[in-house]
Design a protein around this nucleic acid. Sequence first.
RNA 1: GGGCUUGUAGAUCAGUGGUAGAUCGCCGCCUUCGCAAGGCGGAGGCCACGGGUUCAAAUCCCGUCAAGUCCA
Length: 908
Amino acid sequence: MFSEDEYRLDFFVDEGFQRKKCEKCGKLFWTRDRARKTCGDPPCAPYTFIGSPVFRREHSLEEMREHYLNYFQARGHTRIARYPVVARWRDDIYLTIASIADFQPFVTSGLVPPPANPLTISQPCIRLDDLDSVGRSGRHLTTFEMMAHHVFNTQEREIYWKDRTVQLCDELLSGLGMDPMAVTYKENPWAGGGNAGPSVECLVAGLELATLVFMDLKAVPGGPIEIKGERYEKMPNYIVDTGYGLERFVWASKGSPTIYDAVFPDLVRKVADLAGVEHNLNDPEYSKIFAQNARLAGMVDLDEYSMKDLRAKIAGSIGISPEKLEKTIEPMERVYAVVDHTRCLAYMLGDGIIPSNVKAGYLARLVIRRTLRLMKELGLAAPVADLVLMQISRLDYPDWQERFSTIKEILDQEEQKYAETLEKGKRLVKKTAEHFRKMNQAIPLQEMISLYDTHDIPPEIARESAEEMGASVQLPDNFYSLVAKTHIRAEAKEAPKLVLPGKTELLFYEQPFDQVFEAKVLEVVDGSVILDRTLLYPEGGGQPADHGTLEKAGQVFRVVDVQKSGEVVLHKLERPGLEKGDHVTGKVDMRRRLAHARHHTATHLVHDSAKRVLGKHIWQAGAQKSEDRARLDISHYKRISDEELKAIELEANRRVMETVPVETRFLPRTEAEKLFGFELYQGGVPPGKQIRVVRVGSDIEACAGTHVTNTGQIGAIKILKTERIQDGVERIEFAAGEAAVRACQERDDLLGKAAGALRVPAEQLPKTANRFFEEWKGQQKEIERLLEELARARLKTLTAEAQDIDGLKVVVQRMGSADIEELLKAASLLAEQDYVALLGSETGKLVAAVGKSGLEKGVKAGSIIRAAAKLLGGGGGGKPDLAQGGGPDVEKLAEALKAGCEAMRAGS
RNA sequence: GGGCUUGUAGAUCAGUGGUAGAUCGCCGCCUUCGCAAGGCGGAGGCCACGGGUUCAAAUCCCGUCAAGUCCA
């Protein structure tokens, strides 16, 4: 907890603020109003702005954003452009959840200078935590813009701190026409993402408009300060992190019943019209219902409050029945949610997320499917793509307009996919329901979980169809938490990588083609030596380590692995023998190095070509190189066709033929981002202040790997195959340089062998193979037909030698080297004519069949076979009328048949 | 990254170790003035692929490929 000193600002004192304790929640807050008793935050205080706006006039979203950014620009802040909603510069979160996320971790840690200081930004953010409340609460959104001003203070230079921050906030609000008496600043320590600090929430008329965070702590185990159970210590740098809810400002300026009616009234109107839902806020009765709903919903946390209770309470306070309330607001709740969700999708897809079953793509699919369900409930037949495109055309991002057709294709495909999943689901439910209805049981919970978990059939839908079928289900209220439980597993914690002190100078960037270097052994750790300088590339960025040798006084030590740890490079040796202080001559295995370099540069080319051929939504999702091949994973929403693959291969090879120089240079991170954008981070986010930028023609990436100096050195690129490693991620495997030539040769060999086997030239292979296959199929049919005929023909011979055993016609015969099919045919024909048959072949196969009279007498084919096959050293079995078996001791066939014969007698 | 499920006829699926099936669709014939419906007959299967176990594998085991789905 923070002491009062942290909050007793000169600004508060000068302005006549008092520090008070909320009589309801006990939290401390600052106010100008001597009569105020509560902190101003629901549920301690109600919404009072609905119907009576807190600002002088109404602002649209665009007006409010401009007003805000201009205000801070006029006060010395630099306006910077928004970051994408996909946090590609982060490896810990998928979506941008706050404006400060743009600057974590390197700017906030002080490692990298901010793009401007102080700065102001309006950052679109996506949070899916409260998905279920969107539309219902009147205030929740999945997507919102967090307006902010940020200051990054250092020990050397303080720009401004708490006083100025609160003052700027206060004056911004007063300037918009807010009554200064109405605002409260509630003390609320903030912690998140490894940082923490004092913070105040700015509340007006029950609405939290802004949060002002003074981030000056970082998490340290055993640190002196405790906040929310974590230990922290002071940071040398300290940061003003503010967040102003753009949508809430707009809402406060309008005082409309819901935030949705304030933020996107035009789209709410359109969607309501499309769905045929009446929505007339000018009708005072109708408007009152929504206003009251929002006021009361604003007071509770929907997670903890049952919808039914809330509805009853609201209905009571307006004086209508809960049924009427529900009928009035439920369709609109869905309309609101659809409008919100489609805006969310516009941002997600516009910023390049590809729907998938994993990672950020899964979140996109989640929102898409939720939207489709809502639309279905509304009876809204329009394609979801149309609604999303409507959102996009409303937003001012020109590059998104270009992506219209891709986005439409993605959404249409998702819609179709979901329809198929549901269709399949319905059939499955039907089947399951029938099964359990027959058994006169309710469908067990386990089955319901499996339907949802494995086939995405929501239990509510499953119940509905099952009950239509006349089956009951077991469905507890805490269904989803039960599902979650089945997924809980102890997570394997990764051991923190040991960071060794010291520094190894990396020579391979400056001298990529030098082979020999002199160095000194700084340390020996577990059979690995640390050198003061090295030409050997340590594993990283999907490129394996170099190999080579270290030599001391004629002794040669092979280097079998090279790893980076902190700023030092560890060279793992095949055998021990080097000591601290030794001077060594190092040598790089250039063959391996060059093969890696070729594949690495080729990876950049294939990536760039894929982007040209498939579209701008292509992002690298992973990559791995080796000496003889490389693979590149890219985000793409469907399978890459053969034609596209050929086009990519050709494009990549064209860049090779153009002999483009490969440029590499180190740039300050912020500058590189400014110049080239986040497309730099295809291979993940490199740490550090300076990043190495590699440019190959039009492809520019942050990359620490070793490259050739000119694409011509790659020689050739041969794509070998594609694989779909996840929904939404395609893997392209290819070879470069010598490896490409060898790969082609291997394929030629295969082709040659295949053609040789059929004795045709390779060109005729497809045609011939096809012919062979067709002929083979035809012959299979012919064989079957002939077997049938043969069996019939033999029938006469076989029956001629029938013997009579206990009044049954019995045939026991050796059938030469006939196979099991032949025996089966013959035996079953005999059985049809009421014989008991036991047929054996010299290959050790036996078949027995029993006709009608035999069956009546209790003769079982299975027992006959078991008795006979035992003698052959094998086994057998089957049904009473037909059985088969065999064994390896073929020379005992005669005895076996005899034994079978005796079994017949015993059986009858 | 982890978990679960599924690949059988053109489609939807049955088949838990013993001669690969049903329904719809397709083709032919019958019935009918014609259509729909009905009756009779027929074509259509490397049971995803590759190994293994077994006398015997669509079925069991391992691997590969393809598809679906949930969670972080």
